[in-house]
């Protein structure tokens, strides 16, 4: 009988003591998976795309600049006398879909792209491990025909890129893999393959909340030995990301002159070992045209 009373007493007090508000809170705030944001600060790692997506209604105006080669000597002021510019306007049509158009002085290209964010890395229970995006681009070379006497087709100016972006953020470090296919309708010589496969590797390490180091390398599969007159190299680029409000400023060094997939994957003819290095920068300015309050 005594024990029963004791048991009853314990039972009486049990729910109050065992379940304090903190326990209840832990039970109720069982939040589902949360997507991981800001794997990269800008939509480009350096030359190539990153998984950073423009959200719906965001307009990104980008100015990219590459100087000449550092090894061109004092006459060219170590490359700073020459310049090569790419301008582009990019826009988030949906939170998951962004498009862009651009103009580059290198080979006088006009280009356009669309990128779709397929999945996002998440944290929490049942989280998806990586962020996946798909990029499709088209580029037209605007140079005068090298041989105007033969029949030239507009389609010969075109090249296309298809790329998957697979990225994961580990706290301060973000890494990205980019399996890529570049198709050129016309190549400079018959020795050049029309289809180029490449595997890109990129990374970012955050030094502070607003400063990061970045790197990007594409391994391009080419016939060995290369049978073309110009020797092509794999593009390797290193950079610094500096963020100030709506701007992202990227200072870079790279062996590639072009700033679009067709050019830097297909036509990088500078070698790091020979000192064919270009200093350059990208500036990104994001404007919010369609804010949520207006929707």
């Amino acid at each position: 009988m005594k024990y029963t009373l004791l048991l009853s007493f314990i039972l009486l007090t049990f729910p109050l003591n065992a379940q304090n508000l903190n326990d209840l809170m832990a039970a109720e705030s069982n939040d589902g998976p949360q997507s991981v944001e800001a794997l990269f600060k800008a939509t480009r790692v350096i030359n190539g795309h990153s998984v950073k997506q423009l959200k719906k209604g965001e307009l990104d105006f980008r100015i990219s600049h590459r100087f000449g080669r550092v090894n061109s000597g004092p006459y060219e002021f170590f490359g700073l006398d020459q310049s090569n510019i790419h301008l582009s306007l990019e826009y988030g049509l949906l939170d998951k879909l962004m498009v862009g158009i651009g103009r580059g002085t290198f080979e006088k290209t006009i280009d356009a792209f669309a990128r779709y964010n397929i999945a996002n890395q998440q944290t929490g229970v049942g989280a998806f491990p990586i962020t996946i995006s798909y990029l499709s681009t088209i580029e037209t070379i605007g140079l005068k025909w090298s041989d105007p006497t033969r029949t030239n087709y507009f389609s010969s100016r075109l090249s296309f890129t298809h790329q998957l972006l697979l990225a994961r953020k580990f706290s301060k470090l973000s890494v990205q893999l980019m399996p890529t296919l570049v198709h050129r309708n016309l190549t400079p010589t018959v020795m050049d393959p029309n289809d180029l496969f490449a595997m890109g590797f990129a990374g970012r390490y955050k030094l502070t909340n607003r400063l990061a180091v970045t790197g990007e390398y594409y391994y391009v599969v080419r016939p060995i030995p290369q049978r073309t007159t110009t020797k092509f190299y794999n593009p390797l680029s290193l950079g610094f990301d500096i963020e100030t409000g709506g701007h992202v400023f990227q200072i870079v060094i790279t062996n590639s002159q072009g700033m679009r997939e067709g050019s830097f994957i297909g036509k990088t003819n500078g070698s790091w070992l020979n000192g064919d290095i270009h200093i350059g920068f990208n500036i990104s300015r994001v404007f919010t045209l369609d804010s949520k309050t207006k929707r």
Binding site: E37, A38, K55, K56, G57, E58, N209, R210, E243, G245, G246, V286, T288, S291, K292, T293, K294
Partner: peptide
Amino acid sequence: FQFPKPLMQEHFNEN
């Protein structure tokens, strides 16, 4: 927290 500008929201969380 929802902000009118997506970039503001990113900065709020990141920075």
